[in-house]
Write a protein that binds this DNA or RNA. Structure first.
Lengths: 200, 200
DNA sequence: CGCCATTATGACACCCCTGTCATATTCAAT
DNA sequence: ATTGAATATGACAGGGGTGTCATAATGGCG
């Protein structure tokens, strides 16, 4: 956790510092990120940085905390609409991600870079993510029970597919900043997965 | 290109050097790879390294050349069987990749790390890859003409899906070293894509 | 004002890296 | 055996990085 001095910082200075950190961590991997660049950008001295944070990891955790807060703020009042099936649930989720990407591209980028980092510290952080797969799995099973999805479809496989495909779409459209097209493409993908490619 | 001195090297020494390079480049990104570690492992002096190669890039290119050769050796006499459709072509390709992964996991790993590297040099190298997507696109169009795939399926989309899903499967099974399961999973995925998830 | 706690600073030690270069060694050919 | 070319070597320059620490500046408060 950041040192007391950090929390005592006057607002303006703290914001400058946070912005510099976000800029750095959304441009470089944690391993590649440079404290030198951060302090230069924030206009503070090397010594001060270490007055605020224990070290680079500490600083990173502080930023992650801020991101988590903001994420919660944006996602909390999203209609947790009872999704009719996995596919709808999926699209709901994607629309939320679109909002997130548009509102906070730098935050999203930090997430992307996290996935690319191989350092122990980051690997440990990333591992702590059970999440979404379980959610999809349960939905798929429910849909099978309701006769919406064929019962001989392997839930695990379908879930992997959904997650895998979209990782690609997300990434692709994020670099192009074409978020609307992303939703369209996803709808088409889901449609295809439901109907299959075969001529009937 | 490597310097003449490199090519004059006695076999044993050259092999030790190459092995050290492969070990390094299959463990670290090009940017993160360290000449210090390479020379230590190869048991040569720093000066010697630069007697053989212009610099790190030069060394990397030499290794890529060796990999390309080996890849060709393994892939050349694979039955370029006239695949019946995209899905068969896809599985053919995947089986080749399996052989490659098993035969040369380190080489495969170098490819993976290349994708993760953001340095200019590597980005430039990676870009020069038109490849597989075009191939899939043409096959998909052919299948549509032959009435195997519904004509209202977007070829680009299907191609993206195939490539995207498998990137995930490949990666996942590569880390688990479970190549047989990889083929099975891919077959299941392809089956699902063909038939769709809907109950008919 | 004077005093003390808090905060700010940049020089410093130490680490790792790449690429160079004068010098030493090896080796083949005369 | 001598000599000259090819090869080997590690000290060195120069750059970047992190974390520390003695010292300086600041700011409230008695």
């Amino acid at each position: 956790m950041a040192k007391p001095t950090y929390y005592n910082l006057e607002k303006d200075k703290q914001e400058r510092l946070i912005d510099a950190c976000i800029e750095e961590f959304s441009t470089y991997t944690f391993s590649e990120a440079s404290i030198n660049r951060i302090i230069k950008r924030a206009g503070i001295s090397r010594g001060s940085f270490y007055q605020y944070f224990e070290d680079k990891e500490d600083c990173y955790m502080e930023i992650l905390g801020i991101i988590a807060q903001e994420k919660y703020r944006i996602f909390k009042d999203v209609v947790q609409a009872e999704a009719g099936n996995v596919f709808e649930a999926y699209l709901n989720m994607l629309r939320q991600v679109k909002i997130w990407m548009e509102a906070q591209p730098r935050y999203y980028r930090i997430g992307v870079l996290m996935e690319l980092d191989k350092s122990n510290f980051i690997q440990k952080l990333t591992k702590q993510n059970p999440g979404m797969m379980e959610y999809f799995l349960s939905l798929i099973r429910k849909d099978q029970a309701n006769g919406i999805i064929r019962s001989d479809v392997d839930p695990q496989l379908l879930s992997d597919m959904l997650i895998g495909i979209n990782q690609k779409l997300l990434m692709e459209h994020f670099v192009n900043k074409d978020y609307d097209r992303m939703i369209e493409a996803s709808e088409a993908v889901l449609d295809l997965i439901q109907k299959g490619t075969m001529v009937r």
